[in-house]
Amino acid sequence: MQFDSISDFFNMGGYAFYVWLAYGVTFFCLSTLIITSARQKRKVLIEIAKKMNREERLKETRSNKS
């Protein structure tokens, strides 16, 4: 679709509300997904590091008892 001016582009032939709302909802959902995924990844990596440290400490205590 070709527009004569920038205001025609933003008006979207009378469907601006629906078009820009769709873009907004999509951007919001994708942003939320990215942010929550990054936070969950960080939590999982921290939990894995804690478990590895705990296992290392257990191995050290077992080897010291022997």
Rank of each mutant, 00 (worst) to 15 (best):
N64G: 05
F27R: 05
Y18N: 05
G24I: 12
I34Q: 13
G24C: 08
R42L: 15
A16M: 09
I46F: 04
I46P: 08
N53D: 05
L58Y: 02
F9V: 04
T36D: 15
I35K: 09
K65I: 06
F28V: 05
Y23I: 07
K43V: 04
I46H: 04
K51R: 15
I46M: 11
L21M: 14
F28A: 04
L21G: 12
A16P: 07
E56M: 09
T61N: 01
Y15P: 00
S31C: 14
R42F: 13
V44P: 00
Q40I: 15
K65Q: 03
L30V: 08
W20P: 11
W20Y: 12
I46W: 02
G13S: 01
Y18F: 11
F9A: 03
Q40S: 10
K51L: 10
L45G: 07
G24S: 11
E60C: 12
R57G: 11
F17R: 09
C29Y: 12
A49F: 05
F10R: 06
F9H: 01
M12P: 04
S63V: 12
M12K: 02
T26E: 15
I35H: 09
L30P: 11
I48R: 00
G13F: 11
R62Q: 03
F28H: 01
Q2T: 07
R57C: 06
V44S: 06
K51T: 07
L30H: 14
L45K: 05
N64T: 10
N11I: 02
S7M: 00
F9S: 10
K43L: 12
Y15C: 15
V19H: 00
M12H: 06
K43A: 08
A38W: 10
M12W: 03
N64S: 02
M1T: 11
M1L: 09
A38V: 07
M12A: 13
I48T: 01
Q40C: 13
L33Q: 06
R62K: 10
G13E: 08
Y15D: 12
A49I: 06
I35A: 14
Y15W: 11
D8A: 02
L58M: 11
L30Y: 15
